[in-house]
Design a protein around this nucleic acid. Structure first.
Length: 523
RNA sequence: GCCGAUGUAGCUCAGCUGGUUUAGAGCGCUGGAUUCAUAACCCGGAGGUCGGCGGUUCGAGUCCGCCCAUCGGCACCA
């Protein structure tokens, strides 16, 4: 494994309003990026906006502004919103960046020269009002009439450039056979394999029915199709079209994290393009599923997306880190959708964050305050209930880091939290609050509380990628000096870093919140 | 329609290649114990014909078939 690592979100379409989907994908990547930096890897975390295409052109026209103006506004809105989620992306790419456009043209030229792109003719059923084509089956369904205007579809023809996707059938099959982890989770991989078996058709790479896009080199009237433009962002951001780029070392991507709806582009078209360009393939395309809301599918037509104001209410009530915790531990990372429910959110918040992490930090710090006047006691050595803390921590650290690496973020969270539960169990077994009644026990009492604090400190390091601000608050209470951008998790997570005598303050991380009303989301 | 799943306690799910038991975990609910802690931690309890039917087998949530139900992919959407 190389030391550099590269993780990407899809670039977000500026014609959309930011919602839970954008927040979720980006948060997943953020947690992984933070964990890997903390683990000592040189991480490049990329997100951005996709700004071309007919939809943007139309929306802009409807508002009487230029497409560029619309893109500028909405891209800025995405940047503003993403900042609300405490994200640590290293770069924000825009497909309207001159540097991106220049490189896209260079890559397309390369593909043309190598014969992977050719000029062909497209003929199909055209809806003149909507300026779009329908497939043969769709046209038949529509009875060859426009679904909007009701006017008959016309038979139309246009010259388009095509990418010879069909030529990569065998290579793609080989890729999927040799690298079972190329597409994850497994259920998604099977879907792609199924479609792959049906055979591949060449895909258009240019359009002539709109102008808001990157011009096809030497082909007036042709604009590069938004999908091709968008996919290339992953390598233009690294400057891969240029001879020497300082970021080139990050390629290939460790993870392209995408929503399941755009898996095909990333799992098939994108690798084929990279093969055609003689570039290395990403290690993994990870396709998560969707959030549904209170048992109901979210859709544009229903307009019931968990939108920004809703998300902001959760931040205000429970804190940003609690939101991140819910995203990571309850989100649709596997092949099935996950339900976002106010009740469930509240229950998990209370059970895991208030009653477990915060409570354990609170009771430990309280006892140190009460019995040792807030100064961390020393470990007096010796066995207490036969519990080998150093080994227990080592094992939890090892497993948590492994889970983070593999993008098993929920398991990483659960393993880290399990260490906190170990501390609770230890307190219940040893009952320091009873030992405290007899001054003769002071050394054992100190030993117990030192070990609780130290194990909590290690657990907190493991939790940091998910809940950075709350963990930093914990560190302030427990006198921990830690810099996750410089320090190595594996070093910090070894036993015995806390110094006896350190001031420990009473720690209250997650406040108890009143249960939400029965129907909470609309507001 | 075509392909693919899934169906186990109120909820979310573990149960790998069939034979450790009276089928488990977390959350929720409920009884108790306790007080270091944010009425938290701890112990106990209730509750499931493991979707239905049939088959293979000495023996099946665990394999096979059929049926029912739910969901996903095949068109834009994180």
């Amino acid at each position: 494994m190389t030391n550099s690592a590269y993780i990407t979100t899809p670039i977000y379409y500026v014609n959309d309003k930011p919602h839970i989907g954008h927040a979720y994908t980006t948060t997943l990547c953020d947690v992984w990026a933070r964990a890997m930096r903390f683990a000592g890897r040189d991480v490049f975390f990329l997100t951005g906006t996709d700004e071309h295409g007919v939809k943007v052109e139309k929306s802009a026209m409807a508002r009487g502004i230029s497409p560029q103006q619309l893109a500028d506004e909405n891209s800025a809105e995405f940047r503003r919103v993403l900042a609300l989620f405490g994200l640590s992306n290293d770069h924000f790419i825009r497909t309207t960046d001159p540097d991106h456009k220049r490189q896209v043209q260079a890559f397309i030229k390369r593909l043309l020269e190598k014969g992977h792109i050719y000029l062909g003719t497209f003929e199909g059923w055209y809806d003149e009002g909507q300026e779009e084509y329908h497939t043969e089956t769709r046209a038949k369904e529509l009875d060859y009439k426009s679904p909007i205007s009701g006017r008959p579809l016309t038979r139309a023809k246009e010259d388009n450039y095509y990418f010879r996707l069909s030529a990569f059938q065998a290579q793609l099959e080989k890729l999927f056979a040799e690298r079972p982890d190329f597409v994850r989770p497994e259920g998604r991989r099977n879907e792609v394999l199924g479609r792959l078996r049906d055979g591949l058709q060449d895909v258009p790479v240019t359009r002539t029915n709109f102008t808001w896009g990157i011009p096809m080199p030497d082909a007036p009237g042709h604009v590069i199709y938004v999908w091709i433009d968008a996919l290339l962002n992953y390598i233009t951001a690294l400057g891969l079209a240029d001879e020497k780029s300082p970021r080139a070392k990050y390629w290939p991507a460790t993870y392209h994290v995408v929503g399941k709806e755009i898996l095909w582009f990333h799992a098939v078209i994108w690798p084929a393009m990279l093969m055609a360009l003689d570039l290395k393939l990403p290690e993994c395309v990870y396709a998560h599923s969707f959030w549904i809301s209170e048992g109901q599918k979210m859709s544009k037509t229903l307009g019931n997306f968990i939108d920004l104001p809703t998300i902001e209410r959760y931040h205000a009530t429970y804190s940003l880190d609690a939101w991140r915790w819910y995203m990571i531990t309850q989100g649709p990372l596997e092949a099935t959708d996950a339900d976002f429910s106010a009740k469930h959110f509240h229950e998990m918040y209370t059970a895991e964050l208030v009653n477990t992490f915060a409570n354990c930090a609170s009771r430990t710090s309280a006892m140190i305050g009460k019995y040792f006047e807030g100064a961390l006691p020393a470990d007096g050595g010796g066995e207490v209930t036969n519990r080998n803390w150093s080994a227990i921590c080592h094992e939890h650290v090892r497993q948590t880091i492994l889970h983070y690496e593999r993008f098993e973020l929920r398991q990483a969270a659960m393993t880290a939290l399990a260490l906190v539960r170990e501390v609770d169990a230890f307190i219940n077994e040893t009952q320091p609050f009873k030992l405290a009644k007899d001054p003769a026990n002071v050394q054992t009492l100190g030993t117990i509380l030192y070990r609780c604090s130290e194990a909590l400190r290690i657990a907190s390091c493991l939790l940091w990628p998910i809940m950075p601000s709350k963990v930093e608050e914990f560190w302030r209470c427990y006198g921990v000096t830690c810099n996750p951008t410089k320090d190595r998790l594996a070093d910090l997570a070894t036993w015995g870093h806390l110094k006896p005598g350190t001031r420990i303050e009473k720690c209250a991380l997650f406040m108890r919140v009143e249960a939400p009303a029965a129907t909470p989301t609309k507001g």
